[in-house]
């Protein structure tokens, strides 16, 4: 049974004309798959490899380098929340925010809440140091955050 839907396959193929090599479509393809499923399974990797005329190990090699992608044993929750822990944010209390949020959600950074509403992670500098402390919800930035904001990010996804 194929893992990738026809829609995803079409979207991946749309990238081919942009690059002189199919391998360059590796990151776009991994993004499309992870956005859809919340992880990249072994079978999805094999199917991406077929589409890009590569070996599955080449896809795995690239994917495993970027901590961004999740394999099937570590799927993402509905929302992915990143709290910045780099210097400017730390100087303004980011590590306290992360610690408090972890305590309230009963998870450690990198883990997903039991109800699957949120995966909470730490991030290195998000490029919003003037709004420290800050976080990213999927790819949307929130500045001047408190632990309440972090906890609320997961709750909202029920709506």
């Amino acid at each position: 049974m194929s893992m990738l839907t026809e829609e995803i396959r079409i979207k991946i193929r749309e990238h081919f004309s942009r690059y002189p090599s199919k391998q360059a479509v590796t990151l776009p393809a991994l993004h499309l798959v992870q956005e859809h499923f919340g992880f990249v399974s072994d079978n999805a990797m094999k199917e991406i490899a077929e589409l890009l005329e590569l070996s599955p190990s080449q896809i795995f090699d690239t994917m495993s380098f970027y901590g961004f992608f999740r394999d099937e044993k570590h799927p993402l929750g509905k929302k992915r929340v990143w709290v910045c822990r780099s210097l400017s944010c730390s100087l303004r209390g980011a590590e306290d925010v992360l610690l408090e949020a972890c305590e309230r959600l009963q998870i450690a950074p990198g883990e997903t809440t039991a109800d699957g509403s949120m995966t909470l992670e730490y991030a290195e500098c998000l490029g919003a140091c003037d709004g420290a402390p800050c976080m990213l919800i999927d790819d949307e930035l929130k500045e001047l955050i408190s632990a309440d904001d972090v906890v609320a990010a997961g709750v909202r996804s029920h709506g």
């Binding site: 990151l27 890009l52 690239t62 970027y66 901590g67 961004f68 991030a123």
Partner: peptide, 22 residues
């Protein structure tokens, strides 16, 4: 779009990443 790695800012790291590699 990148995938969350500082080293992709180094110009040849960027090039390798763009080519679909680590």
């Amino acid at each position: 779009r990148g995938a969350g790695a500082y080293i992709c800012g180094e110009e040849t790291g960027l090039i390798e990443s763009l080519e679909g590699k680590r």
